[in-house]
Amino acid sequence: MKSGSNLEKILAAGHFAFTGELGPPRGANIEHVKEKAQHLIGHVDAVNVTDNQTAMVRMSSWAAALLVREMGLEPNYQMVCRDRNRLAMQADILGASALGIRNVICLSGDHQQFGDHPNAKGVFDIDSTQLIDTVRRMRDEGTFISGEEIDGLPKMFIGGAANPFADPFEWRIHRLAKKVEAGVDFVQTQCVYNMDKMREWVKQAVDMGLTEKVYILPGITPMKSVGMAKYMKSKVPGIEVPDDVIKRLQGAEKGKVAEEGIKMALEQIEEFKEMKGVSGIHLMAIEWEHRVPEIAERAGMLPRPVID
C-alpha cells in the first residue's frame, strides 16, 4: 500500500470506487461543513475537499479535510498550484500526512481572474504534473524537490485531473501518460457528457497500458435543468455537452427535468461499471449534496464496501 487510504484499499481490492465532492464554506462556519458531510458519510469512499475552488477564498482545504475526517469521512485533499509555491506545497503535504490525510489531488487551479480577488498574484511556481511528481518523490524517494532528504515520509495516494474533452483530443491521452509518468495513482475526469469521446479516450488508455498504472474515475454531474446544460455547454471551458443531451432534457416533462438528469447520470454509471479501464466514478453533485444518498442508492452503489 502506498498510503493505506480507504480509497486506495477499495481500488486495490478491485471494487468500483465512488467519490464525492465537498466545497468548504466561505467562512469559518463548521456547521456548514458538517451539514454537507452528513449527506456523504457512508455513501462515498472518499470526498474531494476543494481548494479555493473557482478562485474564491474559502476555508483552507486541509482544515476542511481534517474536519470531515473527524466526522468519519475520508478526504481527498485538493491542492492547487495557483496559491502556493513549492515550499508551501511540500510543507502542506507533510502537515497533511502527519495529521492523517492520505489522499491528495494535485491540480493547477482555476485562474485567479475568475474569482473574487482577480488581481491577486497567481503563484504557479510549479504545474500540476510537476506537483504529482513532487509528491511521488517525497513519498517514494524520500526527498524534497531540492534533493534533500525527508525525515518521516508522507503517505499519500496521489490523484490528478484529466480532461478527455479539451483540445487537441489526440494529445489528451499523452497528457494522461505524462501524469502517469509523474506518478499519479488515480485521476478523476472532467464531467462526462460526451460518451463517444469518453469511450474512445478510455480505450486509448487501455491500449497504451496506462490503466495498469492509474485508476480512472470519470466525473459525473447530473444536470439539474436545461439552463444548466446550456450554461455548461457555452460558458464552462473544457466541458463538452452534446446537443442530444440538451434535447433529451428539453424533452422531459415539466417538473421532471432534474429527474431526467439523474436518470442520464445513472445510465452513465451503469455503462462505466462495465467499461474496461474504468475503476469507479467521481460524483460532483454541485450544491446538491443532499441528493447524493439517493443517487448512490439508485446507482446500486450502496452499501459501500468496508475494508480494514
Binding site: S128, Q130, N163, D167, W171, R175, P237, G238
Partner: peptide, 8 residues
C-alpha cells in the same frame, strides 16, 4: 506540461 483541460 500543457495544455491544461481548459483550452477552448
Amino acid at each position: 506540461n500543457g495544455p491544461c483541460g481548459g483550452t477552448n
